[in-house]
Design a protein around this nucleic acid. Sequence first.
DNA 1: GTTAGCACTCACTTAAATAGAGTGCTAATA
DNA 2: TATTAGCACTCTATTTAAGTGAGTGCTAAC
Lengths: 350, 350
Amino acid sequence: MEQELDERKLKILKAIVRNYLETGEPVGSRTISKYTDLNLSSATIRNEMSDLEEMGYIIQPHTSAGRIPSDKGYRTYVDDMMKEKMEEMSKQQKEISDIKDTLLEKVEKVEELLQNTAKMLASNTNYATMVSSPRFDKRIKFIQLSIVDENKLLCVVVLDGNRIKNKIVNLTKELSDEDVFKMNMLFNSTLNGLTVEEINLMTIRQITGQAGEQAEVVGKVLELIAEVAGDNEDMKIYTSGATNILKYPELSDNNHASDLINVLEEKKQLTSLLTDKEGEENTGIQVYIGNETPVQTMKDCSVVTMTYELGEGVQGTIGIIGPKRMDYEKVVENLKTVKDKLDTAFKQGD
Amino acid sequence: MEQELDERKLKILKAIVRNYLETGEPVGSRTISKYTDLNLSSATIRNEMSDLEEMGYIIQPHTSAGRIPSDKGYRTYVDDMMKEKMEEMSKQQKEISDIKDTLLEKVEKVEELLQNTAKMLASNTNYATMVSSPRFDKRIKFIQLSIVDENKLLCVVVLDGNRIKNKIVNLTKELSDEDVFKMNMLFNSTLNGLTVEEINLMTIRQITGQAGEQAEVVGKVLELIAEVAGDNEDMKIYTSGATNILKYPELSDNNHASDLINVLEEKKQLTSLLTDKEGEENTGIQVYIGNETPVQTMKDCSVVTMTYELGEGVQGTIGIIGPKRMDYEKVVENLKTVKDKLDTAFKQGD
DNA sequence: GTTAGCACTCACTTAAATAGAGTGCTAATA
DNA sequence: TATTAGCACTCTATTTAAGTGAGTGCTAAC
């Protein structure tokens, strides 16, 4: 028996997967015999299925049941499908999916946009979805200090992309208006245009040196900036449709479902899924099947993620979590459309 | 038959409720006969139960099953319990519950604090929990305008409690540094100390008049302020333990559970629960039983909320969502402890 | 007013019977 | 040699029936 899948075996495998995706039930030889255009009897199919099982592509849950795809089986199916999708794409054959157009209604706030995206995607696919806010790089555009109360200093840092961070700092001694003015000049001339990472010891010494008596302020301000740098919570994660998980019996056995929903509610663990994997393929699509996912709780799920981009390399991620028998084709299609919408939405909002 | 509950009936009712809280099963006459210290035979209890049912305090799910409390039954139980609690409280009998002390570990960020609170409360009670961030009133403390780019104006509003709102505004024409300085003076002298609601037409006319050519800027800034005012999203809601709902069979029948978890995931609808009800009782505790809740999805749940306070009337709300047969006593106890912790945490953090 | 006793109801459990889908193997066929 | 028909066998799921037990309502006695 050859190790490689011949064409007929592949065809049968695909038929099995596709059928299982639909029904969620183990699929038997007779079904396949009718399902495909191969015109083979169930007996022949049985022989082939026996081979496929031995090769690890399909699994028999128990004697005298049909077969279901193994992770390996899903994987080949997905890979094969992706190949087709790529070809399709290159033909620019952009089929417009009937995604509802709620997305583009005027949403000023990014948060709301992303939340809506997650929601829409969930209701469209019937899986759980997650969307991460875009990760910007942290280049300082502008710094503004000003006095609020006698010894409270408002300190605002504007980053590229007009994201604003601020904090109120308590001082031990009062600053004159003139002092503040000078400090503003100092910080802006030294730090503007730098990314947070680029501020090194040299820069710090330079500033502290020029600040003279106001070294205290420098310290506090730099602290704020450090805070900005460490602010990974910058990346917010929005989820929706967590309960869709309950719709799939294979995931909804009591504890399993709660665990999954908890992970979605807590969001922290999702970071590993949404974090840059620099998707090997240029589509930016990443498919984790079963154990492939970095989140242990999801070992019986599949996760499909796709990154969306905002011009200058700034990017975020959209993801879908469902049973292994998720409708990969539909999911990828949906993700693509959403990606497009997000891309344009952000371009317009800019 | 008198309409009022005599002492014996009340005692029996309480026994029924308490037993049902524990077991979740309809409770029969024999159980009560042994459970109470009344020394009555099951037959007598049966008679009393029959009365209680007719009076609407308990319900028989089907012939030949025990009784379960009706909403009315729960209500009297809770009211009675609260009365006792109040007396207890007045005796300063502060029993320290064994709530884990995770709460007070150093959390700088309020968000994280609240998130942790929700989580801890959920794991302690086994119900779903929600915590709203405190609602401050919106008194303007300080306004700061400054130029970022040629025609982009950074506009920062500092509110009481040092909360900071900001936005970047696009201008059609350039402003000189001097212009900005003047505008700053103008806004601060006019608006500082006012609450957002107090800015009326008079104030606006006054500013616009003095601004002269810079009327455009005034408009934009006032817009930001209006945004601050309308910013109800200021109130963030944190939930945890949504899946605890699945632990109670009476809530976990398929659609029911999903609907509930969805409401918790979406958070919007929770506002009505967490919004100021000016808790009639001075404890700030509010108990919604079954249909009493404003959220229709929760008609088979009970919701207990409690407001916590930060000195100057600024307050937020903690809430617990569970089955009607929730352990009200434990819940109230937990809420009280958490409230205390939050109160002190905020006081320290100030 | 309270209680003992008894017939009756109804959900739930258990066990057995049945149906049905699917396999593996063998022998026949093209 | 590859394919197919046929059949015995396996295992799950569904149905059916019987049995169990908790609990009630009512009546008559205390």
